[in-house]
Design a protein around this nucleic acid. Sequence first.
DNA 1: CGTGATGTTCCGAAGAGTGGAACGGCGTTC
DNA 2: GAACGCCGTTCCACTCTTCGGAACATCACG
Lengths: 258, 258
Amino acid sequence: MDERASVRTIDRMVEVLDCFSVDRPAWSLTELSARLDLPKSTLHRFLVGLERNGLVRRGHDDNKWRPGHRLVIWGSVASATNDIQQIAAPIMRELAETTRETILLTEYHVGEVVCMDKIETSHSVRIALDVGSRRAPHAGASSKVLMAYLPEDEVERIIEVGLPRYCERTITDPVALRSELERIRQCGYALSYEETDCGAWGIATPVRDWSGAVVAAVGLAGPTVRYSDDAAQRYVALCCDAADAISRRLGAGRADIR
Amino acid sequence: MDERASVRTIDRMVEVLDCFSVDRPAWSLTELSARLDLPKSTLHRFLVGLERNGLVRRGHDDNKWRPGHRLVIWGSVASATNDIQQIAAPIMRELAETTRETILLTEYHVGEVVCMDKIETSHSVRIALDVGSRRAPHAGASSKVLMAYLPEDEVERIIEVGLPRYCERTITDPVALRSELERIRQCGYALSYEETDCGAWGIATPVRDWSGAVVAAVGLAGPTVRYSDDAAQRYVALCCDAADAISRRLGAGRADIR
DNA sequence: CGTGATGTTCCGAAGAGTGGAACGGCGTTC
DNA sequence: GAACGCCGTTCCACTCTTCGGAACATCACG
């Protein structure tokens, strides 16, 4: 990446805002300063600037910093203007109704798989994955299917970073992972069973744009208690159909869609 | 506002990202440059920096700039960690079920009223207002109720900026508006009928935190075809109950909740 | 193959951002 | 109630980063 063609302040700002997570939404100045290894004065100036713009706010009892309202605005604009999400929504809804399982739309972005949209079912036992949440690129059906269509060197980079184990069946061996990816490319879909969360299984299929590039994955996630080979087979077909339908509306040619 | 205690780059970055809206999600470099009155070289450096961080992406057919995936992540974190939203959600859901109208949670932020959360009904005819969308502070029930509890000088500032008309019954006269706000403070809720959109009416009630400050509004919005004085009266009571329930869970004392 | 539009890179100058240090406010300890 | 320690805030002179005009590259169109 080109070091010169950038603005350091932007990188810093992103670092600051990236500190806020669902698990850790509130930070005091000192805490943030320690976490980011930035002088308090610098960070303070930063936070005040962010606050002025509604990117962060501070609680008026504790005065810890929290994410601000403008992030909600931007997030909704980003969601609403993502072509794939817009096109996928009705197809995902249909898929959710016929399968009665949680349906996910995921994208790969720099080393992570991001959940861009989801539809949950009415089942009381269901897999819940929040929009905006991120997962490892090697574990789970959606992750694997996205990884399978990544450029060679990107795959190697992911493997080099390491393949941590999340559950009993997480694939942590590079050789096994490479052959699994090859298998996925062969048959055009990915399966997982307790790779990320105990008690969960999933299916995922690739979504292609007009150029034939895989730009997203449509996935289905359910509890293992509702797993059966029969159901899996049925759902695979349905997921493939859904992904292909989305691809077609993105302009993908016949050749791309198996 | 303190001019010195800030970082210009942050303000600029916000300006850039603020250009993207649901109506205008894609911008070419030249378009943005014209809009923001920034040299193309500067803007380009900026955009590349934002792109590196996933705040914007460019289409690989047209290479226009669009909101990036990280905004989705931040938005979901901001939503998920907003205490008020979390607390309000179940109460709003109940309200939506009993009234079968769209329920809104709104907050006032620097001259605008932002929709922070919503629950839509199953009615095919319904009022749809997106999360993250923004409205004028003087038109509509939610806006008026939030404005009613603003500090005096903030109210005056809004009036000075101007009170544009959005619909036939928008209050555009400062005197009328001030007395309407007074009326809202008296009875503790706001009503609107075709103030923002033709064919829509609404109710809104204030939500208070532990300090007694009004921090949000719970609103109900429906089509005028389903309006009746009787229904309005019933819904006002229900909205008040809902807002009070949320306030109580935010720690508001008995005295604050009328 | 020229023309005009766009996007991209370069580089010297200038001033915006930096961060150590000092300050002020608040709660806690002795 | 004085002294201490912790945290947030402000200050200011130096310096490194960003700025933006201009040159360059790329592409579409005639």
